[in-house]
Design a protein around this nucleic acid. Sequence first.
DNA 1: GAAAGGTCCGAAAACCTTTTCGGTCACTGC
DNA 2: GCAGTGACCGAAAAGGTTTTCGGACCTTTC
Lengths: 342, 342
Amino acid sequence: MARTPAPRGTRAVTLSDVARLAGVSVATASKALNGRNHVHPQTRERVLEAAAQLSFSPNSLARGLLAGRTGTVGLLTSDLVGRFSLPILMGAEDAFGAGQVSVFLCDARGDAIRERHHVQALLSRRVDGLIVVGSSTDPRPPLADAVDVPVVYAYAPSEAPEDLSIVPDNVNAGRMAVEHLIACGRTRIAHISGDRQYSAARDRAAGAQAALDAAGLDLVGEVAYGAWEEGWGRAAAGMLLDREPEVDAVLCGSDQVARGVLDTLRERGRRVPEDVAVMGFDNWDVLATGARPQLTSVDMNLEELGRAAARALFEAIDAEHGRGVHTVQCRVVVRGSTASAG
Amino acid sequence: MARTPAPRGTRAVTLSDVARLAGVSVATASKALNGRNHVHPQTRERVLEAAAQLSFSPNSLARGLLAGRTGTVGLLTSDLVGRFSLPILMGAEDAFGAGQVSVFLCDARGDAIRERHHVQALLSRRVDGLIVVGSSTDPRPPLADAVDVPVVYAYAPSEAPEDLSIVPDNVNAGRMAVEHLIACGRTRIAHISGDRQYSAARDRAAGAQAALDAAGLDLVGEVAYGAWEEGWGRAAAGMLLDREPEVDAVLCGSDQVARGVLDTLRERGRRVPEDVAVMGFDNWDVLATGARPQLTSVDMNLEELGRAAARALFEAIDAEHGRGVHTVQCRVVVRGSTASAG
DNA sequence: GAAAGGTCCGAAAACCTTTTCGGTCACTGC
DNA sequence: GCAGTGACCGAAAAGGTTTTCGGACCTTTC
């Protein structure tokens, strides 16, 4: 292991050093290293050898300064702590990582001032583009500053219609969920969701209703809006069973809610999925696979959403900037809690 | 709302533009904007005005090229998907964010090749330092490449003792956990943990044993190592109750395990916390607060760990590089599952 | 009135890389 | 032997900022 200790303080090795060692000019060294033509193979070899020997690493700053492009993008999120930003971020990092692009990560903590601060910092670092990741699917105001690089909004769309936004298709997700339950033979379907303030909750309910309408079914009871918590799931399930004992499926607004619903069903002696099928949203692995039985859930494909945002940004950097709100489809991940009715 | 549309293609405004508009030289403009002395107040005012009018944003690339410092650091994580990297990352971002430092985020996906690739990219971007975040507390090999900037290892320590690592103090955490249970009046304490391969599991068990020894108590049964899953918690709790029915407290290796234990206890008719106290590890909010009763848990203070890593990196950049493994203390977050024995 | 001193400003170098363009050299064909 | 032709290499500029240092100008003092 020839792991040389960090030679702190030593000036970084530059192209001139390589050129000197190889006995050529910097111009030739540059061309040799970058695979430009008009360099004698033997010369190129000498340069490469010298570069390897000095473990030369070209200074991206100088390169970026000259090229007007830095190969960096900014990822601006509102709440890193939330579990939605992260997969998106991963997907984006993934899509960029293949190429030569590095990602600046900034968390605005939901604070507009901090957001502006971060945007300024990113612009001064001359990022080639910006992805703005929201913490919910509710539309958010566009960036306050005039930005001369392309911007893609992910998860939370921009309120400005001329901006490009990429969001999960929650309406269709609700539809798919109910269709799955119907395919499992369920006809008396209830919906316990989270906070009504969230467009995600309303959109999913709307999609669910659409699927019910299409099948000529009615929702059992009203949509029970509450909180995105297990406790709410437990409480709401209790009320539901009291009022609508004949229910045979519960679509839940999130996996947390579903976990609560599962708990109450178990305590009330209802078997899942035999008596009642339960379905969650988000496909949060730790909750879905830890449940008894394991929880069928709708996955929002957030990583794919992140990748899509990254791809869109690429296109916007190289060519024309897209507009409007684009959606990424969700998918149903079937587990034990919605086995077909026997 | 003077949100001008992105003027794509327009060359970015430079200091020369500002200087020209203000009727001074670039040197003077630079000094005026950077608060250097030897600039007439009136001149400075003119320059500031011009800069504001053009919404000038200094080019960090040029600045970094000259200064030899970029004000950027690299954050290299092995698994962004895991829930441990994220709070650390947030803490680091937090500590940096106050200043003028931006963070490059890279996820190596646990792949050594990808890691080297990322390190090279970061070095070519001339980061001022590097934080390497592991996915478990098990020691990891040091970076493969010779790196001429300071490196701080967070969560997973480096195997090389001359490196600087910052990790949670799991041994002491296990001790604190048992001390808390004893303080709650428990004396027949069992320990159900996760995968024995993880040093975190072994360290916590060691600390727990130390606290028991100090109190003159014995562990009820053996440490039950298994998996970091709810299912294991349920199964292990069942076996525990069969073999050691007199147990009055269960220390769990993670919140997931604890959730499983809570489930089994409830089904077996044991009241929590009256009959049996339950305690988790990680203080994973969604699991701990969703539980019935809410779960007492040991918080590893990962955000603080991230901040500590960032601070250590700062110091290493400005001054001398620290060495060895440093620990960040954990803390017990008390909730309903360990109320004092009545 | 001249020297001294102080205040403010600008020219130029430096940071490192890429690219353009002109120059050198060897070789070919007459 | 000489023009012509490639092949290869190097000088220099460009990119935007900071810093140094010299110069210009004004005020003060003898």
